[in-house]
Design a protein around this nucleic acid. Structure first.
Lengths: 175, 175
DNA sequence: GTACATGTAAAACGATCGGTTTACATCGCA
DNA sequence: TGCGATGTAAACCGATCGTTTTACATGTAC
């Protein structure tokens, strides 16, 4: 594994487990197994490192969500929760930790959420056919965020609850 | 307002807006309008201050959720979001920022979530009559967390979406 | 009238913060 | 052979961290 990806995966793990602000650069260099000089050459700054971590995570997450039905989406969410942990949404946590200041970070986070919502809209449209499904998409988005965050204390089966609820909503929408 | 409650409300605002770790004690004393000596006499430490802030917030939040129907619950959630802001759940954020270490904080957070889930179980039972409604309670819990967190980027009307979805689930459960 | 509780202002504690710098090693490639 | 890119190790920068301390001002109650 090359230096850059070693850095990104170590940083993602540290930020996710201990939080962005609480993770010092010394612990980052130790976890990544490199000198601070090398780290700064690759990342530029701590804030830029976070944006790169989030960009890589978004790519991996969205790849896992390449599904064609709402039901499969929540199965994918449960898999993600089991494999990537249940510490809440790293994007929203990053936004909250920086207080919404730090425009680079806020930009990455909000862009990711917008992209996911667009993806969700496509999935819903694929199931229900063309037409406006704004309200239903919004409800499933709420179920998605709920699965991610309830999983922190209820476990990955929160995604199964969301999946069952979404099935009811879809059946209702088709009727 | 006496010293202690002045401290607690200032600290809650600072922790909520800028995050726990990112808020220094100097900014806390400035916001609370008191010397660091007085602050430490009342709070003991930064971590203990957070637990007191969370305890006070839980009391206020649970008071706002004293409702007798799921529908009224989500109305109350929307009101909370409009009045208290949409920066995500301060309890889950505190847990994430401390990485789950700091047992005093993790304890307060998990106790709050357990208490709210119990409350939710009562509300559901009041609507559907006695009997086991575990699965439905779990689904509405997911909608609740989803409303809180989707509101960060979709606005307080995320609670209205959750409300509409919950109505469908309840109608289905009664049928 | 003096003891006590409650407060302020400000200096100081050692530790750690994000970030830079200096000095030196190793490697592939011309 | 030599040069540039890439890396390490570690000292160093000023600032800030959470916390304690010293010194002093109140008001209130025995």
């Amino acid at each position: 594994m090359d230096t850059k990806s070693k850095l990104l995966s170590a940083a993602e793990q540290m930020f996710d487990r201990h939080g962005y602000t609480a993770t010092g650069m010394d612990r980052l260099t130790a976890a990544a197994g490199m000198s601070s000089r090398t780290l700064y050459k690759h990342a530029g700054s701590k804030a830029l490192l976070l944006t790169e971590v989030l960009a890589a995570r978004e790519k991996r997450f969205m790849a896992g969500m390449e599904v064609t039905s709402v039901d499969a989406l929540f199965v994918a969410v449960e898999t993600w929760l089991r494999e990537e942990g249940r510490r809440g949404c790293l994007f929203l946590r990053s936004l909250a930790e920086t207080g919404g200041d730090a425009p680079e970070i806020a930009g990455v986070v909000l862009a990711h959420k917008a992209a996911f919502r667009a993806r969700l809209g496509e999935i819903v449209a694929a199931e229900l056919g063309p037409g406006a499904h704004e309200a239903l998409t919004e409800q499933i988005l709420v179920l998605f965020e709920g699965a991610i965050h309830a999983a922190v204390y209820r476990g990955p089966q929160a995604a199964a609850s969301a999946r069952a609820a979404a099935a009811v909503l879809l059946r209702e929408a088709r009727a």
